[in-house]
Design a protein around this nucleic acid. Structure first.
Lengths: 146, 146
DNA sequence: GATAAGATTGACGTTTACGTAAACGTAAAC
DNA sequence: GTTTACGTTTACGTAAACGTCAATCTTATC
């Protein structure tokens, strides 16, 4: 009657590279690439990689990090700062700082994009105006670009 | 008394590469690079490049395009579609389409960024909560990342 | 045991927009 | 006549995150 009885329902103990690739919607190449960069280090059965649930968790974090716009380097640092024994405070603080940095970067990016959007909308209006008015005005009226 | 009397006030007939580099806040290397890519083709005095006002205009367009997030390739196409004799309608239509495309790209990017910002803000809140509460709770409580 | 399916490694390719260094030319200034 | 400043070409370097072979290896299936 313990919750113990059901193991390997949703979460098995270990996964193949293809398992995780499919689960997370990336290619195996990508996962190997992350390993190359030191972001995960699955065990091996011979040559074959075997991923633990912990590895799977790291992968999840990596991909979330990417969605949030972190570089793999930054993600690696965040992951590296976690050592199972020591205080996680450092890691949390580091991650927190990075999150805040990233937040301001994104906010700033958003401003840029908003400006570009405005400019584009304006430009589109002008273009459409030219096309509907200047269109009827003849053939040699335009002297716009160069 | 004609406005003819004042030439070379703001706009000279031609400019050096350094002139334009400074005016637009880019390096000469950048401008030469654009030439490499076929975006401008200044005349030459021997080897030295001489930019006309038309060239300067193209440069202005190029840089605005970049600000709006267009690739140099796209900008080149827009510029190329302008042939001084023919109807500029094609070019305008092309540019218009590209602008609209870019607009939706940017709008979509903005959504992504907004989502990331929300996630980050939430994450930051959580991190700060953990840091202020879990901080006092002892040394071996954390099991967050892997 | 032959063929196919999936895994692994290694290495080069891709994309974009320039940076950077080397080696040389040209022209004005002192 | 030489320093100084600016200009030129050529060509390799950079950054990020993988993609894309190619060759080899193991494992499973019939």
């Amino acid at each position: 009657m313990n919750a113990n009885t059901r193991i390997s329902l949703d979460d098995k103990a270990h996964f193949s590279i293809a398992d995780l690739a499919e689960e997370f919607g990336v290619t195996s190449r990508t996962i190997r690439f992350y390993e190359d960069k030191g972001l995960v280090s699955p065990e091996r059965d011979g040559l074959t990689r075997i991923y633990s649930r912990s590895d799977r968790g790291r992968l999840k974090i990596i991909l979330r990090g990417r969605r949030l716009g972190f570089s793999l380097q930054e993600i690696k640092k965040m992951l590296d700062m976690y050592s199972p024994e020591g205080e996680a405070t450092d890691q949390l603080n580091y991650t927190l700082k990075k999150c805040k940095d990233q937040l301001s970067k994104l906010v700033s990016q958003r401003s840029d994009i908003n400006e570009a959007i405005s400019e584009l909308e304006e430009g589109i209006r002008d273009l459409e105006a030219h096309l509907s008015s200047g269109n009827n005005a003849g053939k040699k009226s335009s002297k716009k670009i160069a």
